[in-house]
């Protein structure tokens, strides 16, 4: 029974992802992403990973996609033609390669994985709480990778400053050149 519910959530997640790229209206695309995120969160619940499930719903569906929506609305993308791309040879080849990949990878996973493997993960968290085992993973074995991520955030931060200071003000062109001379 639970395998079927799981499969339903998986299909919902996949359908949401497909809708993200098919919709021409960016707002609909962002809302489809919410659907995918919620379906993923439901899958995590069924696997016993409650903390990740909540974080997924709160952070991705609640914060990140809402931020996407704000940006889309601020940019005021009225012209939906901007997101329209003709279905040319390039798209056809891409679709063919994508289908091939899904066929090979999905087929292999279908052959290798069995439904009861999903319920196995719930047993992992039985002895100790889920947050505890997550913290152990994050702050013991993966402490250095975890800290290294902060450097990526630093790089992203500097990048944003550069883009805004530098590309945001085309009018400042002359003043800077005169500085140089």
């Amino acid at each position: 029974m639970s395998a079927w519910i799981m499969a339903a959530f998986m299909l919902t997640a996949a359908a949401g992802a497909v809708m993200v790229i098919l919709y021409r209206n960016p707002v609909y695309s962002a809302l489809s992403l919410v659907l995918t995120m919620f379906a993923l969160s439901a899958i995590y619940v069924m696997m016993g990973a409650y903390f990740i499930a909540v974080a997924q719903a709160l952070v991705y569906a609640g914060a990140i996609v809402v931020l996407f929506l704000f940006v889309i609305m601020l940019l005021n993308l009225r012209n939906q033609q901007a997101l329209k791309e003709s279905f040319g040879l390039r798209a056809a080849v891409g679709a063919l390669l994508g289908a091939l990949f899904i066929g090979v990878a999905g087929g292999t996973m279908w052959a290798v994985l069995s439904p009861d493997q999903f319920s196995k993960s719930a047993e992992v968290f039985k002895d100790e709480g889920h947050t505890e085992s997550l913290a152990r993973l994050l702050f013991k074995n993966n402490l250095v990778p975890f800290e290294a991520v902060s450097l990526i955030l630093l790089a992203a931060l500097i990048g944003v400053v550069v883009l805004i200071r530098f590309h945001g003000r085309p009018s400042s062109d002359n003043s800077e050149e005169s500085n140089d001379a």
Partner: peptide, 9 residues
């Protein structure tokens, strides 16, 4: 993480 830290800049 190394590849991302390298690529983003």
């Amino acid at each position: 993480i190394g590849i991302e830290l390298m690529s983003l800049p």
